[in-house]
Deep mutational scan, measured.
Amino acid sequence: MFYPNSPQTSPQLTQIPYGQQYAMMQRQIQQPYHPFATTEPQARLYPYHYQGPIQQEQGGFITQQSTAASPQYVQMRVTPVDQSIMSGYPNQTANGSSSSSFNYNIHPQQQQQQQQQQQQLRHHAMPVGSVPLQDDRYRKQLIVNYLAPDVTSTDLHELFSRFGELDGARIIYDKQTNMSKGYGFVYFCHAEDAKEAVERMSGYEFHGKWLKVGYSTNPLNIVPSNSSPYVHAGSRGAAG
């Protein structure tokens, strides 16, 4: 039997160049792979992502010199942007860049009308829970959420009447099932009393439920100042 490094198959040491006398086997001759043993700084910083320098080929596509990437890492192929796409944008300079302001050559009167329309939209648009300043009635009506099913309009009136005089209180019921929808409205005579009720009743436990109280901004629920107070009856038909 002959071994790869046996004296019968191995040459004389004098015939082997210096430095390879003890590297006779194939696994010894093959050098191990060192990912950080390279002179390129990109490979030292990113050993798993770097795959060699990027070269520009004919046709405008950018390719990489090395083989496919590892399945664990996804390499994105980048193509140059066609400058003709950006030619339609206004205020574009000769080098292809555009300024931040756009001039669509709008007539001054049209621009003024658009600004007025935007101001009107901001004036009428009102986020949930906010209180408008032009109508004091919005500051007097509250919406009470997360009410228990057994709470009546009379219970709601008695709960909030300790903060001040009320114009009314009612629970909203479903017309088909005649069941409470879980929320109601309270109408105060003074805005200061309503503000105190919002601050003190939010998070209050009532009939096993934690109440959420806020201003009601729905104009359909506003009680006119010259109208008669609501009837605080315990029956659902009268309260709904």
Rank of each mutant, 00 (worst) to 15 (best):
F2W: 09
F2A: 12
F2E: 05
P4L: 03
N5F: 04
S6M: 09
S6H: 11
P7T: 10
P7L: 05
P7Q: 12
Q8C: 11
S10E: 07
S10L: 04
P11R: 14
Q12K: 12
Q12I: 04
T14A: 10
Q15I: 02
I16F: 10
I16N: 07
P17V: 03
Y18D: 14
Y18F: 08
Y18N: 12
Y18A: 06
Y18L: 07
Y18W: 04
Q20G: 15
Q20P: 12
Q21C: 04
Q21A: 06
Y22T: 13
A23L: 03
A23S: 11
A23H: 12
A23F: 03
A23N: 14
M24E: 05
M24P: 13
M24Y: 08
M24D: 09
M25Y: 06
M25E: 15
M25G: 13
Q26D: 03
I29E: 14
I29W: 15
Q30P: 13
Q30Y: 13
Q31G: 08
Q31T: 08
Q31S: 09
P32S: 09
P32Q: 11
H34K: 14
H34I: 07
F36H: 15
T38Q: 11
T39G: 14
E40A: 09
E40D: 12
E40S: 12
P41I: 04
A43F: 04
A43E: 12
R44N: 06
L45V: 11
L45Q: 14
P47L: 01
P47C: 02
Y48D: 13
H49A: 11
Y50G: 15
Y50K: 15
Q51T: 08
Q51R: 13
P53F: 04
P53K: 15
P53Q: 12
Q55I: 04
Q55K: 14
Q55W: 02
Q55A: 09
Q56W: 03
E57W: 11
E57L: 06
E57A: 13
Q58T: 09
G59K: 15
G60R: 13
G60M: 05
F61L: 13
I62Q: 12
T63I: 03
Q64T: 08
Q65C: 07
S66Q: 09
T67G: 13
T67R: 15
A68I: 05
A69T: 11
A69L: 10
A69I: 08
A69R: 15
S70D: 05
S70V: 07
P71L: 05
P71G: 05
Q72D: 11
Y73K: 15
V74W: 15
Q75G: 14
Q75K: 15
R77M: 00
V78S: 14
V78W: 05
T79P: 12
P80S: 12
P80K: 12
P80I: 02
V81F: 06
V81E: 13
V81I: 05
D82F: 05
D82G: 11
S84I: 05
M86P: 14
M86A: 11
M86T: 11
Y89H: 07
Q92M: 14
Q92A: 12
G96Q: 07
S98Q: 10
S98V: 08
S99Y: 14
S99D: 06
S100K: 14
S101L: 07
N103A: 06
N103R: 15
Y104G: 05
N105V: 03
N105R: 09
P108G: 12
P108H: 07
Q109T: 12
Q109E: 04
Q111E: 08
Q112S: 08
Q112D: 05
Q113M: 07
Q115S: 07
Q115L: 10
Q117R: 10
Q118F: 11
Q120A: 11
H123A: 07
H124R: 13
A125S: 10
A125H: 06
M126D: 04
M126C: 11
V128H: 06
V128S: 07
V128G: 09
G129D: 04
V131H: 14
L133W: 12
Q134F: 07
Q134M: 14
D135G: 04
D135H: 06
D135I: 04
R137Y: 03
R139Y: 14
L142M: 03
L142H: 01
L142E: 00
L142V: 11
I143Y: 00
V144D: 00
N145A: 02
Y146E: 01
Y146S: 01
A148E: 02
A148M: 07
A148V: 02
P149M: 12
D150W: 15
D150Y: 15
V151K: 01
V151G: 00
V151A: 10
S153V: 03
S153H: 15
T154I: 04
T154F: 04
T154Y: 02
T154N: 07
D155H: 14
L156C: 00
L156A: 00
H157Y: 15
H157P: 00
H157A: 06
E158A: 12
E158N: 13
L159I: 09
L159Y: 00
F160P: 01
F160S: 01
R162V: 15
R162Q: 06
R162L: 14
R162C: 14
F163S: 02
E165M: 14
G168H: 00
G168I: 00
G168T: 01
I171R: 00
I172P: 00
I172D: 00
Y173P: 02
Y173V: 05
Y173Q: 12
K175M: 06
K175C: 08
T177I: 13
M179R: 10
M179E: 04
K181N: 07
K181V: 02
G182L: 04
Y183P: 00
G184I: 01
F185N: 00
F188M: 08
C189G: 07
C189S: 12
C189D: 03
H190P: 00
A191P: 14
D193L: 02
D193Y: 15
K195Y: 15
E196V: 13
A197E: 01
E199L: 11
E199A: 13
R200A: 04
M201H: 01
S202G: 08
S202V: 08
G203T: 03
F206L: 08
F206V: 03
H207C: 10
G208E: 03
G208D: 05
K209T: 02
K209H: 04
W210T: 02
L211D: 01
L211P: 02
K212R: 07
V213E: 00
V213N: 01
G214S: 13
Y215T: 01
Y215C: 03
Y215M: 02
S216R: 01
P219E: 00
L220K: 03
L220M: 05
I222Q: 02
I222S: 02
I222G: 02
V223S: 03
V223D: 02
P224K: 04
N226Y: 10
S228M: 10
S228I: 07
S228Q: 09
P229C: 10
P229V: 05
P229D: 07
Y230G: 03
V231Q: 14
A233T: 09
A233N: 05
G234P: 10
S235V: 11
G237E: 03
G237I: 11
G237S: 12
G237R: 11
A238S: 09
A239W: 03
